[in-house]
Design a protein around this nucleic acid. Sequence first.
DNA 1: TTGAATTTTCAAAATATTCTGAAAGTATTT
DNA 2: AAATACTTTCAGAATATTTTGAAAATTCAA
Lengths: 168, 168
Amino acid sequence: MELQEAKDKFIHTWGTLATQWGINRTMSQIHALLLLAPEALNADQIMAELQISRGNVNMNLRDLMSWGLIFKQLLPGERKEYFVAEKDIWKVARQIAKERRRREIEPIKGTMEEIQNELVPDTEEKKEVLKIIQEISQVTNFADSTVDSLLKSKESWLISSFLKLFNH
Amino acid sequence: MELQEAKDKFIHTWGTLATQWGINRTMSQIHALLLLAPEALNADQIMAELQISRGNVNMNLRDLMSWGLIFKQLLPGERKEYFVAEKDIWKVARQIAKERRRREIEPIKGTMEEIQNELVPDTEEKKEVLKIIQEISQVTNFADSTVDSLLKSKESWLISSFLKLFNH
DNA sequence: TTGAATTTTCAAAATATTCTGAAAGTATTT
DNA sequence: AAATACTTTCAGAATATTTTGAAAATTCAA
């Protein structure tokens, strides 16, 4: 397999996967492209590489920055803005988990709590409904706090590795 | 809050969340409706409740069955088919995780392995690309096996309480 | 300043996804 | 075997999402 073929295959697979997860295809393709790029790229290069419009590139670059997955890089003597991806994949995973939790898990927790606080269990059916909702809350909280713990332990693992560097 | 209002709010929130996760809105609304229903429902009842067409109901009921989230129930003396949701929420979570892994994680693993097997690291850039791809494989495998082991039993609830202890 | 280079915005177009409903298919009863 | 009850299919319609590209805004050098 040649380099370009491998890159294309990766970018394509990444984009397809993203679609299934409710993430815009172009956004993930740009992300994949930057992950594999040996140096920072500018908008024109991304346009050319993925054959997409300037507006589309701009929009998705901003989205990726808001997810904390890529960063602007200003090269000396260049007016164009360049972009690099965070290449530490653990950080990437952590960042994605953090963002999705903020954007998706937290709102559903809110609704569940609202119903639990305001629905009075004065009939059998209301009790049943509350039971289901409570169980969903439990699973959600469990998933949430598990992800949280794992991310925190990875973080502290990274920090401790980092600190060790200075103890040598 | 009244029962119907609570149900509607839950069904609506569930549908919205699903959209963000790349799952069809109607499918999750039917799932939510059946989760809260005290007894099995038939196609006509679902059509009336959610104001959607027969074709749509039929299609999504079959999808939900293929996910293992609902089951057909034949009531004696009834010609219509009735449907009930799996109400053990831990089973539901496990089932969803299992299906998503089968449909989404496994294909990406395949592509990653293919590239790793066939891209010869004879240049610096190829080595870099392979490094990224290997790291993604690692994270994917980690996430995959973590979810797997966590969902395998209700006892995992204990583990999470346990983990929390160490993060305080 | 001015103007060229670059980025951002956003209405309209293109594309993708979901939904409808009537027709075809299947099963059951009479 | 015909009528009835119900389920499934799928082409076209409706809806939602994404993309384009040209105009407006911004930035920066001269």
